[in-house]
Design a protein around this nucleic acid. Sequence first.
DNA 1: CATGAATGAGCCTTCATTCAT
DNA 2: AATGAATGAAGGCTCATTCAT
Lengths: 199, 199, 199, 199
Amino acid sequence: MVAARREQILRAATRVFAEKGFSRATTREVAREAGISEGTIYNYFEDKYALLMATMDVLNETERRAGDFEASLAENFEDFVEAYLHHRMAVIWDNREVFRVVLSEMLVNARLRERYMREVVEPTMEIGEENFRERIKQGKARATDVALATRASAAAVLGLLVLGLLGDEEVGARWDEAAGVLSGMLLHGLEKSGGGRHA
Amino acid sequence: MVAARREQILRAATRVFAEKGFSRATTREVAREAGISEGTIYNYFEDKYALLMATMDVLNETERRAGDFEASLAENFEDFVEAYLHHRMAVIWDNREVFRVVLSEMLVNARLRERYMREVVEPTMEIGEENFRERIKQGKARATDVALATRASAAAVLGLLVLGLLGDEEVGARWDEAAGVLSGMLLHGLEKSGGGRHA
Amino acid sequence: MVAARREQILRAATRVFAEKGFSRATTREVAREAGISEGTIYNYFEDKYALLMATMDVLNETERRAGDFEASLAENFEDFVEAYLHHRMAVIWDNREVFRVVLSEMLVNARLRERYMREVVEPTMEIGEENFRERIKQGKARATDVALATRASAAAVLGLLVLGLLGDEEVGARWDEAAGVLSGMLLHGLEKSGGGRHA
Amino acid sequence: MVAARREQILRAATRVFAEKGFSRATTREVAREAGISEGTIYNYFEDKYALLMATMDVLNETERRAGDFEASLAENFEDFVEAYLHHRMAVIWDNREVFRVVLSEMLVNARLRERYMREVVEPTMEIGEENFRERIKQGKARATDVALATRASAAAVLGLLVLGLLGDEEVGARWDEAAGVLSGMLLHGLEKSGGGRHA
DNA sequence: CATGAATGAGCCTTCATTCAT
DNA sequence: AATGAATGAAGGCTCATTCAT
């Protein structure tokens, strides 16, 4: 089965890329990790770069399926945020090694960066903004700069992922709890109610 | 002056590394960018990897100088958070290309990662936790999981940096404002006061 | 039918070899051109080199059948030369793509060269020399260096073929006429009779 | 000296290409033949194909210098033809290994073929035709199809070269004499004067 | 017989590093 | 100190050949 063999190679590639980085990784090692010969890789992928693209497509796919979650838009805001973060962060963590590869490469590869931003991040961010505006209209969320607040929220998740990928033990060991703490922070802030200037 | 020449090479290296990534960058191009010959690099740096380490040390240095800011611990919590974020994020953004290189490489280089985590992130995180605990004791901050809340806060900043590095135009164009929005979010949350279950 | 399949593969191989050269041609493309799978080639030929040898044998075969023409040795010299050139050059032009492959390869492959010279060129040249000597004895041809004159005559034909293969449009478009012009030149020379020192 | 090193590499390349053919020749062997390391080749040539082009340029250069000979156009026809052939064939034979490489490759490489035909063969052929027409006007040469007769003359030389390259011992051992025999044949033909139909 | 996926040797090319000038 | 030509190890990729189906 062609798809299975492709999958096998892709998984091996992701493992190797995650360990060495895309450029330092060798096709020889990908082959060894996949238990096949080097030439076989090229029966399933155009070239080494195509392996990276295919790795990225995994995230694309994940993201697309994540869209299903929007249905719950109508529910209670607080519950929604917590459930959404839990769900989303679980999926992200499952794919963390893919993120490791793609993030690392995107940071220093303009073409990859532009493609991923256009195809994945921007659409996602727009849905988030729309969602946010709706909540404000419903009187559930504080009026604020929607674009930046949306990005700050996403950034918190992304930042936790990066911390986890960098080996922060607290984040790595307690990823599930992090979703709860993060939703608390995003909803209510860190300040003790009534303790600030605004009180 | 030896130090100046070193600096010149290092800056060139950072530019090239940021554009192509460490592995794809060539010493030839670093030399060209620095306006010197390839051999000269090796009079100032052991090898190519040493250039990366030296780049990382720039962040180390920046971080060390950032410690001075902790003095302001005694001030009003809200003002402190906002001022701290402004200051810190400004410095981070100034060094964003250094972060680009170091982050990209750390994600896929365990040795670099461990060194940076041990030398920079962990100490910083501990200071943050300490600070946080103090604020709770003072009744300024809500009691919560200090380790995770500290990391979530740092993650928000880190995540914004990453979004900016990935080319998000909102974040890139309005980085200064982002500090304000972020401090608002971290302090008070996104939810309209009295709008949640907790009201 | 085994012979037909062999023929089919051989023709495809000649086409591909002629277009890319033997070394750059791939068995994959030969298979595609023949409308079969790569593996099938190896049921009919030992290896890729055997395809080249078989291509060369086509010329061998052609040359052997050409020998029949010598019967006409007794005829009028001038008519014979013209008829012979016409016939021979027509056959050569029909097989020009085979010559393209074999010539190109022989030039840079000593083993192939030696084999072809021994099996094809030398015997042919000897027949030509014999023929020539006979004509001199008959008083039809000028006494001259038979070995070199024979080779110069053959060279003129060979050279026209090469010019044609190199894409000379005059030669390519008017190959048939070239036989007539060539026989005129070989028989009478270019100089106006009575116009030279010998007059 | 850059030019000398280039020359050294080019000569080695020609030797190796002539022995194995361009495609089968390896850069490793060119380097070994030149007494340098493989990488050094690439300090002087863009890639392997550039070596072939540079080899071809040698012929271009030779051909251009050959143009000087046209000055002798005014002389006695017969002497001119003999002197020209002698001179030209001597130069050709000196460069025979270059011709071996270029011819072999041109036969099966359309791009190379077109370039060489346009840059070298066509201009040369036009000069030859012009020359021929002038001789006819002067009453020195028989009126005939100029385009084809020019090509047939050139073909005789080219054909002798090819025979020599293919290892014909007569041609190889007596190349100098071949020029004389060829000029005799081209001028007066093989037929015994008064022995043909035309007598 | 036919197929075509798998193989792995070998090629061209790049590039960090050295060193004579 | 600075240079940059030379080096050669290593990597991505191709392709003739094999073999299980």
